[in-house]
Design a protein around this nucleic acid. Structure first.
Length: 623
RNA sequence: GCCGAUGUGGCUCAGUGGUAGAGCACUCGAUUCGUAAUCGAGCGGUCGCGGGUUCAAAUCCCGCCAUCGGCUCCA
């Protein structure tokens, strides 16, 4: 038994292998964490602790909060448990025996879990360091929690958790250099906010220290790209306490970029058969009662305001306005499909704790559109939306997607026939497009099935932006009609779709994707001219004027700083191209060009610079 | 909304009960300069807001607001 207490040798730790092993490892880490916590804080109740994408967590019930300091102590204790290489033993147990044991231990959450296991299912527990296997002589040299001789009477090194498993065989199989505790957060028991709030300790765990290092670097990279940080540094936008949380101020540079995005979007839509609408940001509350939002979406709506004894509502969505526009006259089947798009600003009440930079705000602009069409047009319209989505997203540098098709949920409106028609239309469009997708059975909205598209960014993260939804509800509620071939009144099908989703959010994603280093066509300032000394200021201004007249975003550094400083400033502002203007350049009527992408390009004429910029803009690339 | 953390000049951050600090930015002066920081001076803060304790509060206590990490929710 001595070997079981020895420090783990490197051979105990497997080299990278299968994902199941990694999950076991992470799950075991969660147990080791819980064991360490209960050793250090015996009054703590345990609950659940699963593995996650990057590690593990365990939820605890304890009156006092865990401090960052505690985290360090817990991590050290985990290191000791791992160092002691304790055996992990699975035991199938009798439900009633275990029940009385849990009652005696006063672990109410475990009791709830046990009682939730269906009768007849095997019940297992996992021991770490079964006391029978450990004798005092085996204690390690250095005093530790698991130095048995240091234990008080009645204490043991043994710890167990009710758990289905699976786990590693010994704690020593965890590489002590490949895990780390990350943070403490509140979490509700069973994810239900009416239930007690627990303290969740998050950790990360990997097979090797190198993998841990890579993960930590990825985290650093994400931090470096954080749109909130870059938004401040590059002076793109702000969110101000005085105005309120979740309300975005677009600064000149951010606004310039937004304008470019909007112009691109409008052009693309007009070119693909859309018409554009502008509709109000508030409307009579009755509209929202008709649409059903007041009943079903109220918790996300700002409070109503009273205007001359009428209730008005700030809009959380654009769709009712587009429906009203449709209702303003009688439509023939010959007019359909109607494709109406609007950069529609909406306001939604979000609980203060969920606000997050540009990603989650209270006022935002959707690149919304609604297609009103005949049933037989649905499939083609969906396909057209998919094509437009691909064109737009790829122009912004996103070429990889993950697609979900969500089908009819249990609670829903509409007939089987119409659900089938719509779901088939979505499926058929995806098949024609040739996109692989995952079906989320029952994941659709109550009013219709939908396709969601996630884009993968430069560091591999997925962001859900685009959504295409078929809606049977609003046409019904508003009694929408068109006149069919036979003169009868028929109900059109309505498709909601957004490609960016929210301009604010998409802009945030762009910032993170490019780490603020935008391709030339999006860069708020494309070229900055740097005069070496005051004598070149007029020439620089002249060149800037010429290029500005051609539509380029050009400015002259007016700081009076030395060249080195001007270059440093431009680099920090991530300006794609700088052009040094000194005596030489003025004499030869050239610019000495330096780009972020390619470094020093030497002396070029203004026409040459203009040509290179035009080429880079045309292919949405860099100089 | 809930749990925890944080909040000090425009920005990044020192300052744990005794006269509010630094760097950058900004302004002014000198320098007219060749590819990532020229030198000097100056301006600038009721220390998130409101209350309380104390002779004395950025510092201790209470409430609120905002931000950050999560939960829940979601574009």
């Amino acid at each position: 038994m001595v070997s079981q207490l020895s420090r783990p040798s490197s051979s105990d730790r497997a080299t990278p292998s299968d994902p199941q092993r990694l999950q076991r490892l992470r799950h075991t880490c969660a147990h080791v964490l819980a064991m360490a916590v209960q050793r250090l804080f015996p009054e703590t109740h345990v609950t659940i602790g699963p593995w996650t994408e990057t590690g593990f967590y365990y939820d605890f019930d304890r009156a006092d909060p865990f401090t960052p300091d505690d985290l360090g102590r817990i991590e050290a204790a985990m290191g000791q448990i791992i160092g002691a290489n304790l055996p992990i033993i699975r035991e199938t147990v009798d439900r009633d025996e275990l029940r009385s044991e849990i009652v005696q231990m006063n672990e109410p959450y475990k009791l709830e879990i046990l009682d939730g296991i269906p009768l007849g299912e095997p019940i297992t527990r996992y021991y770490i360091g079964c006391p029978d296997l450990i004798s005092p002589s085996n204690a390690d040299d250095e005093p530790s929690l698991f130095d048995v001789s240091a234990l008080k009477a009645g204490e043991s090194t043994c710890w167990w958790d009710l758990c289905a498993g699976p786990h590693l065989n010994r704690t020593g199989e965890i590489d002590p250099e490949a895990f780390a505790l990350e943070s403490v957060a509140g979490a509700y028991w069973r994810g239900d906010e009416t239930k007690p709030q627990l303290q969740r300790i998050y950790g990360t765990a990997w097979e090797t220290p190198e993998q841990l290092e890579a993960y930590l670097q990825q985290k650093e990279e994400a931090k470096r790209r954080d749109h909130r940080k870059l938004g401040q540094e590059l002076d793109l936008f702000s969110i101000q306490e005085e105005a309120g949380g979740g309300l975005v101020f677009w600064h000149p540079k951010g606004a310039r970029m937004r304008l470019l995005i909007e112009d691109y979007w409008r052009t693309a839509h007009l070119a693909t058969g859309y018409d554009l609408l502008y509709t109000p940001h508030i409307a009579n509350l009755d509209l929202w009662k008709t649409s059903g939002h007041f009943e079903f979406y109220r918790e996300n709506m700002f409070d109503q305001m009273e205007i001359e004894a009428q209730q008005y509502q700030l809009r959380p969505m654009n769709c009712p306005f587009h429906v009203l526009t449709y209702q303003n006259k009688l439509h023939s089947y010959r007019e359909l499909p109607l494709r109406w798009a609007e950069l529609g600003t909406v306001y939604r009440y979000e609980r203060s704790g969920v606000l997050h930079g540009l990603m989650r705000v209270r006022g935002f602009t959707q690149d919304d559109a609604h297609v009103f069409c005949l049933p037989e047009q649905v499939s083609d319209e969906i396909l057209a939306v998919l094509n437009l989505t691909e064109q737009i997203l790829s122009d912004f540098g996103f070429a990889e997607y993950e697609v979900n098709l969500s089908t009819r949920p249990a609670k829903s409106v509409g007939t089987d026939a119409i659900w089938e028609l719509a779901t088939d239309a979505l499926r058929q469009a995806l098949d024609t497009k040739g996109w692989a997708y995952v079906t989320d059975e029952g994941g659709g909205a109550f009013y219709g099935p939908k396709i969601d598209i996630k884009i993968r960014d430069a560091i591999g993260r997925l962001w859900q932006c685009s959504t295409i939804q078929v809606d049977f509800n609003l046409p019904e509620r508003f009694d929408m009609e068109y006149v069919a071939v036979d003169g009868s009144r028929q109900r059109p099908i309505m498709i909601h779709r957004a490609i960016f989703g929210s301009l604010e959010r998409f802009f945030g994603i762009l910032v993170e994707n490019y780490a603020g280093d935008f391709p030339l066509w999006l860069a708020p300032v494309q070229l900055r001219l740097l005069p070496v000394s005051d004598g070149q200021r007029d020439y620089a201004n002249g060149v800037a004027q010429t290029l500005k007249q051609q539509g380029y975003r050009v400015e002259v550094d007016t700081s009076g700083d030395r060249l080195g400083k001007q270059i440093r400033t431009a680099e920090l502002e991530k300006i794609p191209i700088v052009a040094v203007v000194g005596k030489r350049e003025v004499e030869q009527q050239t610019l000495s060009v330096r780009t972020r992408q390619s470094g020093d390009l030497g002396a070029l004429t203004v026409a040459e610079v203009q040509g290179r910029m035009a080429a880079a803009i045309a292919d949405r690339g860099r100089v």
